[in-house]
Design a protein around this nucleic acid. Structure first.
Ligand SMILES: [Mn+2]
Ligand SMILES: [Mn+2]
Ligand SMILES: [Mn+2]
Ligand SMILES: [Mn+2]
Lengths: 220, 220
DNA sequence: AAAAATTTTTAGATTTACCTAAAAATTAAA
DNA sequence: TTTAATTTTTAGGTAAATCTAAAAATTTTT
């Protein structure tokens, strides 16, 4: 059994490992909002427990055990987010912090029943996949909206930025999950993207377009 | 803001204060499953924070602030228990431990929405009253089943013992919340109580009868 | 391949919540 | 009202998770 803190380290290492194989001390420190020296201490502890492989100065990778533990926490986090949005009517920009706490509640029974209560959802309110109780989930192939060309169509199925400010912005524009879109223009001047929605057109900056994930209906 | 541990101390002091005015160090230690020396340490800390009044060797009492904090934790505990039973189909003997963890999740918004989602319940699965968001709740006047005389009738509305063993026992006998009962006999030999239910008679020991709470329909 | 910059680790402290053992105060018994 | 038993506190320490400052290793730049 891991401590609250150890669980947070595992989860953060897991997420960082989605981008780089060997996760660096400084990167962990930044995510954990702590100092590199503290990270080194914790890494040693996790290595002693067999949760990470660690070579001094070379960063860490999760062991199979460590990865499973991390995925379990991700599962809990995302299920709780679904609960908060679907059952308690939270907005998608309001759920992350509470889920950060709820994910540490230790009860397998609780999570299985919650999963059932929610109807075994496949994705959380931000479009991120929810691992099943065996830790399995489809590695979804999203395209970043910014990679689409004029005329391409698709459906918004995720975001790669979870800050409240960003999510509220999308909400205001009507760019929420499940919304079908078509790229109507890409501005020469600043590269901003004009998007055709069912009832209106909206213009978003490249920065915003980078963080919207699309399941493409095929290019044209 | 209190730590997880401080919250547990406050809650335990609150419950102990329902029986005695000045709560003793040893009593707290027993409930907290820790040593008296540790309790003294924590009491000093809580006193410094203005959550308890403390005179050396004289025990503690909660301040107004401390009491409010304690009631808030009790509220969360009981609401989560209702959630677990009503929504996730846990049995009344399975919810306490998980609620012990959930009660520490820090989000006023979460609890208010949960309360609403549950339909603003007035009592938890054990019949204990749930304080409203202002900390107010009716001080329910229960009679212990053991105090009833032959011929008295009433309804089971609470239990004063929350152990899984006890609750499972009651469940098996059909003695659950809301069940109307009538005392049909009190055995001379061992003082055990014979109870008439809608469809059957059951016999319970004095020890069990002590921990069943009845809202009386009046004596006869 | 040095020098410079960056990253990571070690060393030594701090804080929180514990602990044991022993001293002090209070309460109960003789 | 002494003595005995109980309760509570103090003193001194431990383990987990931090921190700062300084040393060591690695990487990047000249
Ligand atoms: Mn989240
Ligand atoms: Mn999410
Ligand atoms: Mn309970
Ligand atoms: Mn209860």
């Amino acid at each position: 059994m891991q401590s609250y803190t150890e669980e947070n380290y595992l989860k953060i290492i897991y997420h960082l490992a989605e981008k780089t194989t060997n996760v660096q001390t400084n990167a962990i420190a930044e995510q954990m909002q702590t100092k590199p020296a503290s990270v080194t201490d914790m890494i040693k502890k996790l290595a002693d427990k067999g949760l990470v492989d660690y070579i001094k100065y070379q960063g860490v990778t999760l062991t199979e055990t460590g990865k499973n533990a991390a995925i379990d926490i991700v599962r809990k986090h995302r299920l709780w987010e679904v609960f908060l949005v679907d059952k308690l009517n939270f907005k998608w920009d309001e759920v992350h912090d509470v889920a950060e706490e709820l994910e540490h509640i230790k009860s397998t029974e609780l999570i299985e029943r919650l999963d059932e209560f929610l109807g075994f959802p496949k994705a959380d309110p931000h479009g991120d996949p929810i691992p099943d109780k065996n830790g399995r989930f489809a590695k979804t192939q999203f395209i970043k909206l910014i990679e689409l060309k004029v005329g391409d169509t698709g459906t918004i199925t995720g975001v790669s930025q979870h800050s409240s400010a960003f999510l509220k912005h999308l909400e205001k524009l009507g760019l929420t999950l499940g919304i079908p879109i078509k790229i109507s223009d890409i501005t020469d001047f600043d590269g901003s993207v004009e998007i055709q929605l069912a009832d209106k057109q909206v213009n978003i900056s490249r920065e915003v377009a980078k963080h919207i994930l699309i399941s493409s209906n095929g290019k044209n």
